[in-house]
């Protein structure tokens, strides 16, 4: 079963494809990555780049019709071939999810207490112990009257409160990892600040590693130790300095498109669904394009803990 030691999450040639009428959709396309324990890793990318699908893959919650290839390793276990019982324990205790869209992620027919209780079922302990633990957990996330919150229904809470409740649920089993999927999506400025603080505070809950899937650059900059840039189902660049010192042409263009950096839009469109480019996915929009970019996948170049997939650095 799940051992007590925290491991890195290692993706090897991970691909998630969906067969659609329009052709094969490569939502995640041959991703190699190591998400190290003890770090907060941000997975940054535009809508539709495959980052949420990647997250679901790590949780083992992809729909049954998804075609998954490659490996997701946690310690010695390949999660894609793991025993369903192992996966059940792994969810919650190995990796806790903080889902996107707080208002849609809580069951409107059930009380908050029932959500929290359910999240702790994999732990040993009586119902009363779970209740005490749930109240302590809510208090640690800034709720002053946890027993009142436990009795409340999700729609009786504000968006920020729902977000904090979901964080509490996500760490209820003291998971080794936390996966936060778009934690700031659709939240206003004040709430985003709260979410940043909450995510950083998760370390105090004994969380050993965190993945933050987002398109919010500010969040990535403030919270994450390492950032991985995703585009068209591939990870183009990872590193500690990615946002301050971008290397891949896409990351550079992406940052220049920000309002504070001159708001220069990237010409062209992101790769279409079902795109079968043999070479670099960004080549059609790239300023530094060479001939080989169209035909050949650029190699992954590693320097000082950062990697970039581009011929410029090969």
């Amino acid at each position: 079963m799940l051992d007590a030691e925290i491991h890195d999450i290692v993706l090897k040639k991970l691909s998630v494809h969906f067969a659609a009428f329009s052709g094969l959709i490569r939502a995640v396309d041959g991703v190699d990555a190591v998400f190290s324990k003890g770090h907060i890793t941000g997975i940054l990318g535009e809508s539709g780049c495959g980052k949420s699908v990647l997250g679901l893959g790590i949780l083992g919650l992809l729909p049954s019709y998804a075609r998954v290839g490659g490996e997701i390793l946690y310690g010695d276990t390949n999660m894609l071939k793991a025993d369903p019982r192992w996966l059940r324990i792994f969810r919650g205790r190995g990796i806790g999810l903080i889902p996107q869209n707080p208002s849609e992620s809580l069951n409107s027919a059930r009380r908050i207490g029932a959500h929290l209780d359910e999240a702790m079922l994999n732990l040993s302990g009586s119902g009363r112990e779970r209740k005490a633990r749930a109240e302590a957990l809510l208090r640690s996330f800034g709720f002053e009257e946890p027993s009142r919150i436990m009795r409340a229904y999700p729609f009786e809470l504000s968006g920020g409160m729902q977000q904090r409740v979901l964080c509490a649920i996500g760490v209820a089993c003291s998971p080794q990892w936390v996966l936060a999927d778009e934690p700031t999506k659709g939240l206003d400025f004040d709430l985003r600040g709260q979410v940043c603080d909450t995510l950083l505070s998760l370390r105090q809950h004994g969380v050993g590693g965190m993945l933050v899937i987002t398109h919010d650059l500010a969040l990535a900059e403030n919270v994450c130790d390492t950032v991985a840039i995703m585009y068209g189902g591939e990870i183009l660049e990872t590193g500690r300095e990615t946002i301050r010192n971008p290397r891949h042409p896409y990351t550079k263009d992406f940052l220049e498109a920000l309002p504070k950096n001159g708001m220069r839009p990237i010409p062209g469109m992101p790769p279409e669904i079902g795109d079968k480019t043999a070479g670099c996915k960004y080549a059609p929009r790239c300023k530094y394009r060479k001939n080989c970019c169209d035909y050949e996948k650029p190699p992954s170049v590693e320097t000082e803990g950062s990697t970039v997939r581009c011929f410029l650095y090969a």
Partner: peptide, 26 residues
Amino acid sequence: GKQYCLAANARGIGKYRLVVRNALPN
């Protein structure tokens, strides 16, 4: 298929809890 059931599944629950306790009341 809704988000709250996905979130419930991520809590490491069994099929009975997912279908009967989470989805059925709705």
